[in-house]
Simulated scan of single mutants.
Amino acid sequence: MKKNNYKNHDESSRWTIRNIASDSTIVLLFACFLAFLKPFGMDNISFVYALGFWVTTCMCGYLVYAPALTLGRAVLSSIAPNLKAKNVLSLVVSILCASLIMGLITPFIINLFFSLSSDYWDKVPFSIIACLFIGGVITLISVTKAYVLEQSAVITYQQKRLELEQPEVTILQQKMLMDFMSKLPIEKRGELICLQMDDHYLQVHTDKGSHMLLMRFKDALKQLDGYPGFQAHRSWWVSTNAVTATKREGRRLILLMSNDLEVPVSQTFLGQTKDKLNMS
């Protein structure tokens, strides 16, 4: 049986040369902006010297904040995998921790460029506050960029798969699929796993989580007409690629999905299910 090969764009490509170069460009542009503004009493120094200071500080910050974001997301996912706000919480915690670390490093950079005579620990509180603001802004810009790239990758992946597996799907069907995905919050848009009818509502399960839509089940099936999936029950539709295994409970066939859901197969759709999964 075919398994799901799609990986989360945000995790699989975070450390590619292209992404590092893109993040570094954001950092350098922000350093230029700060060098131009000359904040924190830097009015009397040249633009070039200010630029050297901010490039050094911001690049050091990138080496602290980027791993902190990845580590924070990984730790929180392992501790609370089902927490709905884990992305936001991990972002906040990671920024706070990285700002604390960078606040301890920044006084050394300040002394390197300006040789100030004040005590190291006198500079730390202000450095932490400054890092929290500057690092937070740069991080939010980088995270926003990552979200945009991730959604672009999801759409590109779905379009390519439709072209490879369903060459007869028309442009209208592809548009209907994109319209359906656009109904989901941006953080829930991912590879479709299954749909579950719940009265007048529709529970949409993706590899990014679940979301409830006020939508009729049959209307959703029309929009997903060109997507590689099938109806397994009067209340369930599943993506073919998201079915990882099957099992029997008495005479009933159960589909095991990639998100650990178990989908029952009714007798009405048993023949169709076996055909879709190449079961004897």
Rank of each mutant, 00 (worst) to 15 (best):
130 A>T: 10
87 N>E: 14
52 G>N: 07
41 G>K: 09
226 G>W: 06
117 S>H: 12
29 L>M: 14
227 Y>W: 07
15 W>N: 15
61 G>D: 01
212 M>K: 07
254 I>W: 02
111 N>M: 03
157 Y>F: 12
210 S>F: 06
187 E>D: 13
130 A>S: 10
279 M>I: 15
267 Q>C: 09
170 T>S: 15
222 K>H: 11
31 A>Q: 06
143 V>A: 13
101 I>R: 05
28 L>S: 11
60 C>S: 15
254 I>D: 02
179 D>V: 04
261 L>T: 08
115 S>W: 06
129 I>K: 15
201 Y>L: 12
37 L>F: 10
228 P>W: 02
81 P>A: 05
243 V>T: 02
107 P>H: 07
153 A>P: 00
123 K>P: 00
172 L>W: 08
60 C>K: 03
209 G>V: 00
132 L>K: 05
145 K>Q: 13
202 L>M: 05
59 M>T: 12
151 Q>S: 10
122 D>A: 14
85 A>G: 00
119 D>T: 08
165 E>H: 11
143 V>E: 15
92 V>S: 08
164 L>P: 02
13 S>G: 08
239 S>E: 03
188 K>R: 11
267 Q>H: 10
269 F>M: 04
280 S>K: 15
186 I>N: 13
219 D>K: 10
9 H>L: 11
175 K>I: 08
147 Y>V: 12
5 N>R: 15
24 S>W: 08
130 A>V: 11
253 L>Y: 03
213 L>E: 00
92 V>G: 07
280 S>Q: 14
156 T>Q: 15
241 N>T: 13
22 S>N: 08
89 L>V: 14
